[in-house]
């Protein structure tokens, strides 16, 4: 009975879809963190994560083990994103909204070009410390492998950490206040500028985790590895509501599962299209996203 459930086609699709969905959710979370903090849509989020993943994971060529390489990616992800905020984004806060968008799109192109030049377009395959062969149940494959279990676990762990940081710590309270009410926060003595930089840094670290996890997929580590994921993450963030970290996670998983089901039962060519259709439907019915509380902000 249990064996039947574990190897059931739909259950397998849900499990496999969840593994990809949490990664989409992770990418969406980065977007939400940056949007909430500074009202900038970071179109370069994907390439930024790709870039720092390269910097860390290529250390494995120099005999670093997987965990050290991943830790380097995350640390560099934090620093790189924080520096981007200080050097590139900060001067744009009081300019027209289109300015940061144009700059971040430029950064997108630049980083992919540099990555191709330095590391070539040929994918690399970092050796994961986990097998990608699915668990078996009474001789039949289930929907999860040790690797995808690790991917889900890593994504959920990092999201939990972010949730605890933002909701249950003093630093999180200051981060949320700086994002919600920067002027009032300044009047209370909060160093808002510094906290916004920190917010970008945290988003960069989360993005690096997404990059490392995705580099273990069959597509490997490549300059454009996050492009498709970024679009899906963007759709997830828009569907969940750009202000809602929980919405990012849930809609990421939903998109992952729906796409997996379409892949399996219909035609893989339609999977991306359905994600876009989902976005259009949600934006028509609930433009603020599903998880955004529809309240006027009074400060």
């Amino acid at each position: 009975m249990i064996a039947n459930i574990l190897t059931n086609r739909i259950v397998n699709d849900i499990a496999g879809g969840t593994a990809q969905g949490v990664i989409i959710g992770l990418v969406a979370l980065c977007l939400v963190l940056v949007w909430r903090a500074t009202r900038v849509l970071n179109f370069a989020q994907g390439p930024m994560a790709m870039f720092v993943t390269y910097i860390g994971m290529t250390q494995m060529d120099h005999h670093a083990n997987f965990w050290v390489a991943a830790a380097i990616s995350v640390a560099v992800g934090f620093i790189f994103s924080a520096l981007t905020e200080i050097v590139i984004v900060k001067p744009l806060y009081h300019k027209a909204e289109i300015n940061p968008i144009v700059v971040m799109v430029g950064m997108f192109t630049l980083l992919e070009a540099v990555a191709s030049a330095v590391w070539t377009n040929i994918p690399r395959y970092p050796t994961a410390p986990f097998s990608s062969i699915n668990f078996q149940s009474e001789g039949n494959p289930t929907g999860l492998s040790p690797l995808s279990t690790f991917q889900i676990g890593a994504a959920l762990a990092i999201m939990t950490l972010v949730a605890i940081l933002f909701n249950y710590t003093s630093l999180g309270l200051k981060l949320r206040a700086s994002a919600l009410a920067p002027e009032v926060s300044k009047l209370l003595g909060i160093r808002v500028g510094r906290l916004l930089t920190l917010g970008w840094g945290i988003a960069g670290a989360v993005g690096a985790v997404a990059g490392v996890v995705i580099s273990l997929n069959p597509g490997g580590l490549a300059p454009n590895m996050l492009d498709a994921m970024f679009i899906l993450g963007f759709i997830a963030a828009a569907i969940g509501g750009l202000d809602s970290p929980l919405g990012a996670l849930v809609s990421g998983i939903v998109i992952g599962v729906v796409m997996q089901l379409i892949n399996d039962y219909w035609n893989s060519n339609y999977a991306d299209m359905v994600a876009v259709v989902l976005l259009v439907v949600v934006l028509m019915l609930r433009p603020q996203g599903i998880f955004t509380k529809n309240s006027t902000r009074r400060v």
Binding site: K174, A177, L188, I190, V299
Partner: peptide, 18 residues
């Protein structure tokens, strides 16, 4: 300048933290 999305206690804590 009260932060509406924060609880009473969070607003007060923010003042002390700042």
């Amino acid at each position: 300048g009260v932060i509406a999305e924060f609880t009473v206690e969070e607003n007060l804590r923010l003042g002390a933290l700042g």
